[in-house]
């Protein structure tokens, strides 16, 4: 009997306590962030869309090797010794033409492992997180800013040089596999978007 009355009292009392708590919350300001209108301030090291500053890229392929899901594909062509490829912003001399620097962001797992090995810190995570597309192909970001013609010229130059070398050495040097001409037409466009 005592337990019975105690149970009753406890039931009513605990319900009232709970109701007090919910009533308190009824008048608390909401914590909702109305996303498309208001955007949340991302933390400093948030990992979102990748961006490559192609001017700084030396084509070392370290990021592509670090990628656990192989979403980065880089193709390079050696520059002619006579050509000046320019310098990166931290003073490294470039030796390779980056003919193709594609990131398939649909595959990307946002681990940020590619950003650490980069010697020039040209590949980095940005705070852009709205990049949904209607076509999956649009998620293949092309960062190389070389046009097809340029690529073709560089390749030709390189092949010529190789051929000259080969002719000069008259030896069966390991011929580099002929890279296919990469469609890099959109590279500049994507680049500006990333800004």
């Amino acid at each position: 009997m005592k337990q019975y009355l105690k149970n009753t009292w406890e039931a009513i009392w605990t319900v009232l306590v709970g109701m007090k708590i919910t009533l308190k919350h009824l008048f608390m300001p909401s914590v909702t962030i109305q996303y498309p209108d208001v955007k949340v301030q991302l933390p400093d090291r948030a990992r979102n869309r990748l961006y490559v500053n192609i001017d700084d890229c030396i084509g070392c392929d370290q990021c592509a090797r670090a990628c656990p899901v192989s979403c980065i594909s880089i193709e390079t062509v050696k520059g002619m010794p006579t050509e000046d490829l320019g310098k990166t912003s931290n003073g490294k001399k470039k030796a390779l033409w980056v003919t193709q620097f594609n990131i398939d962001i649909a595959k990307c797992c946002f681990c940020s492992l590619c950003t650490y090995p980069c010697p020039t810190e040209c590949i980095k995570m940005t705070d852009v997180y709205e990049f949904s597309e209607y076509e999956r192909a649009n998620l293949l970001y092309k960062f190389s800013n070389m046009t097809e013609e340029e690529v073709a010229v560089k390749k030709e130059n390189f092949a010529k040089m190789e051929a000259e070398k080969a002719a000069a050495k008259a030896a069966a040097a390991a011929a580099p596999k002929v890279p296919k001409p990469a469609p890099a037409a959109e590279a500049t466009k994507t680049d500006t978007e990333n800004k």
């Binding site: 919910t22 919350h25 009824l26 608390m28 300001p29 909401s30 914590v31 909702t32 109305q34």
Partner: peptide, 9 residues
């Protein structure tokens, strides 16, 4: 009411 009680909008 449910929204306000859960601190939503």
């Amino acid at each position: 009411v449910s929204a306000f009680m859960q601190d939503r909008l």
